[in-house]
Design a protein around this nucleic acid. Structure first.
Length: 281
DNA sequence: CTTACGGCCTGGGTGC
DNA sequence: TGCACCCAGGCCGTAA
């Protein structure tokens, strides 16, 4: 499941080889996950790739239009659950569910593969001022401790929901929310406003440590995730709670539990992460 | 405005 | 072997 560390790994991988390359042509398969397929087919061929970067869980491929026009623009890609963005030789075998092919001027292709097609793809213009991205909260790796604390300390929602809320913090998904809460020893059902300053600081550090460790291990390969070269990540081996229901807590030995909060599964240690006193439901 | 929650997207895995 | 159904995670719409 591509979250911040996985998208960061892919962005770095693509940024290492794509800038300067020109996109010669575009071929589309299924396109129901693309906002405006005609615009992609019309405006992408002939463009030069300037940079690849991450914003939350979004990938942005910055492009220079074919004629060197002033109007630069970007291809915005969200990988959803099963999306893959991989470069390979143009003659390389095509994986099933590959729906977008960008032919590059060095004989390679940039391909988008997505079994479930929960991903999204669209062209964005006008630099940073773009509504999809404007709605995003702070990047947890860029926010200061003070900003992080201020974001959460007055919120009456469950801390798990707040961590997942992209308009609060951008880039955290279910894996890293659960792993961060375990490291900070905070139960997912606690309310933001009920956390002590000490706990919020602990959570800030936990989130950063988890994300940085995961980036270092090139992300978590749970089901479909691979990096931009098609290689698996390594952080799934270091998960402490995610998908460890019934196994022993690495810290205290208690049995890790899984529970559904607001339709989302949460993995936690009932001993290290004590539940709120009065918990409704 | 804030929060909670159901539903939707799709198809692989599971269990009968 | 076939088949129905559960479920994944993000996001959006709705309601309280």
């Amino acid at each position: 499941m591509p979250e911040l560390p996985e998208v960061e790994t892919i962005a770095r991988g693509l940024h290492a080889t794509l800038p300067g390359r020109r996109i010669l042509s575009v071929r589309l398969g299924k396109m129901d996950f693309i906002d405006d397929p005609a615009a992609i087919e019309r405006e992408i061929p002939g463009t030069k790739i300037l940079a690849v970067r991450r914003c939350g869980k979004f990938l942005l491929i910055d492009l220079e239009s074919a004629n060197g026009d002033v109007r630069n623009f970007s291809l915005l890609v969200h990988l959803g659950m099963t999306g893959r963005l991989v470069t390979c030789e143009a003659r390389a075998p095509v994986l099933p569910h590959t729906h977008v092919f960008f032919a590059l001027d060095d004989g390679r292709e940039l391909r988008y593969t997505d079994v479930r097609r929960f991903g999204r793809m669209r062209i964005v213009t006008g630099g940073v001022r773009e509504n999809t991205l404007d709605a995003l909260g702070l990047d947890p790796l860029e926010a200061s401790e003070g900003e992080f604390v201020a974001l959460l300390k007055n919120r009456r929602a469950r801390i798990k929901a707040l961590l997942l809320d992209q308009s609060v913090l951008r880039g955290i998904g279910n894996i890293y929310a659960d792993e961060s809460l375990w490291r900070a020893r905070i139960h997912p059902k606690r309310l933001g406003a009920n956390l002590s300053l000490k706990e919020l600081r602990r959570l800030y550090q936990a989130v950063r440590d988890v994300l940085n460790d995961a980036i270092e291990k090139r992300g978590s390969s749970i089901a479909d995730y691979v990096d931009s070269d098609g290689n698996l990540g390594g952080f799934q081996r270091l998960h402490r709670v995610y998908q460890r229901e019934g196994k022993k807590c690495f810290r205290c030995g208690a049995v890790i539990r899984r529970a559904i909060f607001a339709g989302r599964s949460s993995h936690f240690c009932p001993h290290c992460q004590p539940p709120p006193r009065v918990s409704k439901r």
